[in-house]
């Protein structure tokens, strides 16, 4: 678990944008918080899983996919902004993110 500083927020945003720009072959400048991962970028679950893995390694996170799955039942991630928000919650709370799930 880590305290999410402005530097971490910026790092996470940068990683997410770079990742999708490369994987989906789009300009980084064309991606923003409201960009829809599946409709606008043609992203898929494999990209989602690989991105989670990048963050797990970078921040040495203890987070299980099933926890993310449960979290997403109540908090679906459709846009880049929602993905960044979820990732910051994971960095801050790891497997406890489920407590931050909408009821």
């Amino acid at each position: 678990m880590a305290i999410v500083t402005n530097q971490i927020k910026e790092e996470v945003r940068q990683i997410v944008l770079e990742f999708f720009a490369e994987e989906c072959e789009v300009e980084m400048s064309d991606i923003n918080d409201s960009t829809h991962i599946f409709d606008d970028l043609d992203g898929d679950s494999l990209m989602f899983l690989e991105l989670i893995e990048i963050f797990k390694k970078k921040y040495n996170l203890n987070i299980e996919l099933k926890t993310i799955g449960k979290f997403n039942v109540k908090n679906p991630v459709r846009t880049i902004g929602e993905l960044i928000h979820m990732q910051l919650l994971i960095i801050e709370h790891e497997n406890n993110i489920i407590s931050f799930s909408k009821i």
């Binding site: 679950s45 494999l46 989602f48 996919l65 099933k66 993310i68 799955g69 449960k70 997403n72 039942v73 679906p76 991630v77």
Partner: peptide
């Protein structure tokens, strides 16, 4: 195998990230 898992999730009418089914 990955395609199989995705395909079955779709047949169940769910996604990996909005159901409790695990890969």
């Amino acid at each position: 195998s990955f395609s199989c898992k995705e395909s079955f999730l779709k047949a169940f009418g769910v996604g990996w990230n909005n159901s409790k089914i695990q890969w």
